[in-house]
Simulated assay, not measured.
Amino acid sequence: MTTAAISYLALGDSYTIGEGALAADRWPVQLAGLACAQGLNLASPDIIARTGWNTAELQEAIAASGNHRRDYGLVSLLIGVNNQYRGQGVELYRQEFRQLLATAEAYAGGASGHVVVLSIPDWGQTPFAHDRDPAQIAHEIDQFNAVAQAECQAAGVTFVPITDLTRAAAGDASQFTSDGLHYTGSQMRQWASRALPVVKGMLK
Rank of each mutant, 00 (worst) to 15 (best):
L101Q: 09
P127A: 07
A135S: 10
G109V: 03
Q84F: 00
D131H: 07
D133P: 00
A129D: 01
A135Q: 10
Q84C: 02
G113A: 10
N145E: 00
R98T: 12
V157P: 02
G113D: 12
E151A: 15
N83L: 09
F144M: 09
R86D: 07
A111V: 06
R132Y: 01
A148R: 03
F159Y: 15
N83V: 05
G124F: 00
F144K: 03
V116W: 07
Q149P: 02
Q143A: 13
F144T: 07
A106G: 09
L92A: 13
Q149H: 12
D142V: 07
H139P: 02
V81Y: 06
I137C: 03
S119W: 12
Q88Y: 12
Y107I: 01
G109K: 04
P121W: 03
A155T: 09
D142G: 14
A104F: 01
E105I: 15
Q99S: 15
C152K: 15
Y85K: 06
V147Y: 10
A148Q: 08
D131T: 14
D133M: 09
D131L: 02
I141M: 11
G80L: 08
A155S: 12
F159D: 06
H114S: 09
S119Y: 13
Q84R: 12
L100N: 05
H130W: 06
F97Q: 06
I120M: 13
Q95I: 10
V116R: 04
Y85R: 08
A102W: 09
E91K: 02
E105G: 02
V147K: 01
A135M: 04
V147P: 08
A154Y: 12
Q149E: 11
I79N: 07
E96F: 04
H130L: 11
G87M: 05
G110V: 11
V117S: 03
P134Q: 13
P127F: 10
A129K: 05
A106K: 08
I141R: 01
V147T: 05
G156W: 04
R98H: 14
I120R: 08
Q95R: 11
F97N: 07
P121M: 02
L118W: 03
H114M: 01
W123M: 08
H139I: 08
Q99E: 14
Q136E: 13
Q136D: 02
V157G: 03
G87I: 04
T103I: 10
A138G: 13
A102M: 09
P127K: 05
N145R: 12
V90R: 10
L118Y: 08
G113L: 07
A154Q: 15
L101R: 01
V116M: 15
R86H: 11
N82M: 01
D142N: 11
A146V: 07
Q149T: 01
T126M: 00
L118P: 03
Y107V: 05
A148N: 03
Y107D: 03
Q136P: 00
A154G: 12
G110C: 13
